[in-house]
Amino acid sequence: MVPPSAVRRPFALFASLLAIALVLAGCASTGSRSSDAGSAAAWTYTDATGATISVDHRPTRIAAFADQALTLFSYGITPVAVFGRVPVKTDSRFADFDLSKTTIVGNEYGEIDLEKLAAAKPDLIVTGIYPTDRKGTLDTTQPDYGITDLEQQKQLQAIAPIVTVKVGGAGQDVIDANVKLAEELGAKPDTIAAAKKRFDDAAARLTAVAKARPDIEVTQMYADADGVYLVKPDDEPVTQLYKSLGVNLTDLHPDGEYYWDKYSWENAHQMMTGDVLLVNVEGYQVADLKKQATFADDPALQAGQVYPWIDAALNYSAQAEQMTKLADLIEKAKSVV
């Protein structure tokens, strides 16, 4: 549930000077790259934007934006560098993975330490790209996700080619795209198959639970002093996935604005149709929600069916875990609306 926003940063000039220095330094030491056995053949990949990326060997040293890094980790590939939108060290989604061999080169949107990134010697950088509308339009005149501007994107490309994964449309498609990339990068088929098994089992259980409890409506939201933001299930790949498995997700205005529907606190009663509320961890939690007089009547809030919710990455294991959590919540939920 990351709004596809690009945040401008003032460090571009400094960063560009640094990048020039790094590129010059890199030129002096061409040919010193290590090449593993089995990855000597040239590697090409066509990414979400249609760009074909070629590397003279299969990339083994990969830098990635947090969401894509999580996915690579889950398929047994340890990235050499990772940059996040929030501090990577405290990002609970990384708790299951060993970060000791990975350099953290960014802890906020667009803040990438180019020097550290270059020092990690990546031969490929992986990040996401978000569509700008419901049709899935990818605006390649804008920087890829996690990157401040095209200037910074150029600086990254000077270090290593960038591959993008589209984060939009059907959740299954995003998962598949992530798997395909992981396979191309040498993920072991056994590892992927094992993760897929967990995913399929969790999906089957979620489907069964959703079918048994069609009365339980689930609302995925974010709230702050201005009001409530409702995720539109068809616009967010994760919710699209759950919806496709039969989960009854709040979807009051499928048309209109892309991605979010915003309600003032005065209008919050219009969206109180959910029995279970999944509230984004970055906004108001139960205590603050209870203090909003116009939200105090919310049936799910009164029934204690409000849960903090993270943006789980779109890979088999993260989604298996998240879907199991969701199935548990739906299973034990009381219908309150």
């Binding site: 945040v7 929030v86 702050d224 002093a225 201005d226 009001g227 003032s264 606190w265 970055e282 909003q292």
Partner: peptide, 17 residues
């Protein structure tokens, strides 16, 4: 980013909520 989000809501000046 988190501070930015909270600050952005606050700095606009609002009577909401």
């Amino acid at each position: 980013q988190t501070t930015l989000a909270a600050y952005r809501v606050w700095v606009v000046g609002s009577l909401s909520g």
